[in-house]
């Protein structure tokens, strides 16, 4: 049975190595406060702050759009995304951005939208129709 022990032993070592290596790839969602402090690349989850304006002028610069985002602690910062504005951006409520702080603005290279679920949409639709017809 020596060979199977050897295979098992190698698998164990590989598993430990993988776990050690993978643990460096994960992190908790950061806040703007963390991002300002450590200046690293972080992921922040938050809401689009409707007080701010969503600015995207593709004619001036197609690879830049700006919005105001409020993180889980309630702190709002300007986010600049160096990509064209994703579709349905206005429809989404929460977003997850990946990037880092540059002074007072957060430079994101990735933004993930979370749209409200379809059923909520329908509910809204029904409600609005109901109010129209009454």
């Amino acid at each position: 049975m020596k060979k199977s022990y050897l295979v098992g032993f190698l698998a164990l070592i590989a598993a430990i190595a993988i776990i050690v290596s993978a643990s460096k790839d994960v992190s908790t969602y950061a806040t703007f406060e963390n991002a300002i402090q450590n200046q690293n690349r972080v992921k922040i989850s938050g809401e689009i702050d409707k007080n701010g304006e969503v600015v995207y002028d593709p004619i001036k610069n197609p690879n830049s759009f700006t919005f105001l985002m409020k993180d889980s602690e309630g702190l709002s910062k300007k986010v600049i995304m160096k990509k064209p504005k994703p579709q349905d951006f206005e429809l989404s409520e929460t977003v997850v951005v990946t990037g880092q702080m540059d002074g007072e603005t957060f430079i994101a290279d990735e933004v993930l939208l979370k749209c409200p679920s379809k059923y909520k949409d329908e509910e809204l639709k029904l409600r609005s129709e109901a109010s129209l017809s009454s």
């Binding site: 992190s27 908790t28 990946t98």
Partner: peptide, 16 residues
Amino acid sequence: FVGTVIKDPIPHFNKF
């Protein structure tokens, strides 16, 4: 407990 996420999934999966 504060949940964790994979920061950059594609390189993470590719490297293994």
